[in-house]
Each structure stands twice: as C-alpha cells, then as structure tokens.
C-alpha cells in the first residue's frame, strides 16, 4: 500500500531538486538571487540531501555567508559546517534568512523557525523557482 503522505513528500523533494537542476542548467546562482534580495548571510534548516545541495552551493560563496546548518533530528552532514538545534543557536549569530529544505513540511514549521530565531524563512521550492526567473 502506498503511503500518500510519504508519496507527497517524495514528490515535493523531487519537484524542488528538479527545479534546482533546471536553474543550474540555466546558469543561475543561488548566491546572486539571495544577494539581489538583500541577504548577506543565511542558515540552512533541514540537513537532508537537499540541505546538503544548498550547502554545497553556498559554502564557497564570496557574497553570501553560510553561517551554519539547523536540524532538530539526526542531520546528514557531508561538509564541515556547524549544525545546531533551533534552541541552541548562539544569540549573536543570527542569519538574514533561513532556507528551509523540507518543502512538504514548510507550511507547518516555518512559523516556529521564524518565531524562535526572529528571522524570515524561505522554502527551498520557492527559492529554486524564483532564482530561475
């Protein structure tokens, strides 16, 4: 039996990953888009495969600083980067924006993240579509 929720989650991940690929093939850079919006520093929430793609994309950026990763569970960390739980974030290290890499959960969790950190969030899905326009 197919778990509909899980299927939906896989589709959302696929949708975001596919659009990320399309945007990259169109020559887009995530750092350019974030910079154009006025963001100088980011954090990545959700260290799954998509989260690691975002880290790979931004870790060497000279225009947008990747401060750290955030994860409430057991993160996959393929890169040398600090990773905190939401309530462990050092108070003097707040990012301009948090990229949430759990598209199927974004609606449920983004308000909590924004309230805890006092910073705006953006869904990975919106980010990879908007950066391609």
């Amino acid at each position: 039996m197919v778990d509909e929720k899980q299927l939906h989650a896989y589709y959302e991940n696929y949708n975001a990953a596919l659009q990320f690929l399309v945007a990259k093939q169109n020559g887009r850079k995530m750092e350019d888009y974030l910079k154009a919006l006025g963001y100088n520093s980011v954090a990545v929430y959700g260290m799954n495969d998509l989260g690691n793609c975002v880290v790979r994309e931004l870790k060497d950026s000279k225009t947008v600083r990747l401060l750290y990763a955030l994860d409430q569970g057991s993160p996959k960390l393929y890169f040398d980067i600090d990773c905190y739980k939401l309530d462990e974030v050092p108070p003097n290290k707040k990012p301009d924006i948090v990229i949430v890499t759990l598209p199927y959960l974004y609606d449920e969790i983004h308000k909590d993240i924004e309230r805890t950190l006092g910073r705006p969030t953006i869904s990975i899905t919106q980010l990879v579509y908007d950066m391609d326009v």
Partner: peptide, 12 residues
C-alpha cells in the same frame, strides 16, 4: 503566471 510545481508550471 507560474507555480512552484512542475506539473502546473508553464513558465519554461
């Protein structure tokens, strides 16, 4: 108009 969903997005 675009949607954040490849099934409906015609912007390409």
């Amino acid at each position: 108009i675009g949607f954040y969903d490849h099934r409906n997005n015609e912007l390409p």
